[in-house]
Amino acid sequence: MPEVIFNGPAGRIEGRYHHSKKANSPVALVLHPHPQFGGTMNNPVTYALFQAFVNRGFSVLRFNFRGVGRSQGGFDSGIGELSDAAAALDWLQSQNPDASQCWIGGFSFGAWIAMQVLMRRPEIEGFISVAPPANMYDFSFLAPCPSSGTIINGGTDQVAPQADVLKLVERLKTQKGITIEHASVEGANHFFENQLEPLAAMVGAYLDKRLAAAPEKS
């Protein structure tokens, strides 16, 4: 999978990109967890999300936020990282101008950023939010949440506790016109240690269902 470098608001951004050979393939952007706690685009959960999209024929980009790996700049408390994600989505779309669908996925801090991107980009049709830290970050900007998606958490997550995630899910479920699903990986901690396979299976099942229901675009 080729390494890519593209320009972001704080300088160069380092990414990994899989390009689908299928014409009009859907695209997906995947965002990694908190840069100040060791989060990178090679985080196992982030990579599992990436592979779930790859396995279903998407062109997929994951990248390092500013100040991580070879990406230039420094941590910016989410403000700059949101700009990085927007630049990454611009780059992904420039490589796939005829994409049939656009999706976003994120893990932990990356899930918080992903949901903010979702609010700003109406072309995003679906999202996968893994362990969103609803106890640490304000998700009230999702009013209303513009697209259907799934939220998945670990049953024994002590970083982003399930009770807080469920409150977020219930609030989003009250909105009309979209469908928010929720799944929990029993016994999984925040990082889904020894539980990546059940997580990947849940993500894959959700994607398969949504893709099967999607109208064909010529």
Rank of each mutant, 00 (worst) to 15 (best):
L49D: 14
L49Y: 14
L49F: 14
L49G: 14
L49R: 14
L49P: 11
F50I: 15
F50E: 14
F50D: 13
F50A: 12
Q51T: 15
Q51F: 11
Q51Y: 15
Q51R: 15
A52N: 14
F53R: 06
F53D: 05
V54T: 10
V54P: 00
V54Q: 07
V54Y: 07
N55G: 12
R56C: 10
R56S: 08
R56I: 12
R56N: 10
R56F: 07
R56D: 07
R56E: 09
G57W: 04
G57I: 02
G57L: 10
F58H: 12
F58D: 09
F58W: 13
F58Y: 15
F58K: 10
S59P: 11
S59I: 05
V60M: 05
V60S: 09
V60K: 03
V60I: 09
L61F: 13
R62L: 08
R62M: 11
R62W: 09
F63Q: 10
F63S: 04
N64A: 06
N64W: 08
N64K: 07
F65T: 06
F65Y: 14
F65P: 03
F65W: 05
F65I: 01
F65C: 05
F65E: 05
R66M: 07
G67Q: 02
G67P: 03
G67A: 05
G67S: 00
G67N: 00
V68R: 00
V68W: 03
V68F: 00
V68Y: 00
V68D: 00
G69I: 02
G69N: 00
G69P: 01
G69V: 02
R70H: 07
R70A: 11
R70K: 13
R70P: 00
R70N: 09
S71N: 02
S71Q: 02
S71R: 04
S71L: 04
Q72T: 05
Q72M: 12
G74I: 02
G74W: 01
F75A: 01
F75C: 00
D76A: 12
D76P: 00
D76C: 04
D76M: 02
D76S: 10
D76G: 02
D76W: 00
S77F: 10
G78V: 00
G78Q: 01
G78Y: 01
I79A: 12
G80E: 03
G80H: 01
E81A: 05
L82W: 03
L82A: 06
S83M: 08
S83F: 03
S83L: 09
S83I: 06
D84Y: 08
A85T: 07
A85F: 08
A85P: 04
A85S: 14
A85L: 12
A86M: 15
A86Q: 14
A87I: 05
A87M: 06
A87D: 13
L89A: 12
L89E: 11
L89R: 08
D90F: 10
W91I: 03
W91E: 09
W91P: 03
W91D: 02
W91F: 15
L92G: 09
L92W: 10
L92E: 06
Q93W: 09
Q93T: 12
Q93R: 15
Q93D: 13
Q93V: 13
S94N: 11
S94R: 13
Q95I: 03
Q95A: 12
Q95E: 14
N96S: 11
N96D: 02
N96V: 03
N96T: 04
P97W: 04
P97M: 02
P97Y: 08
D98R: 10
D98N: 14
D98K: 15
A99E: 04
A99G: 09
A99H: 13
S100I: 03
S100H: 01
S100W: 01
C102Y: 03
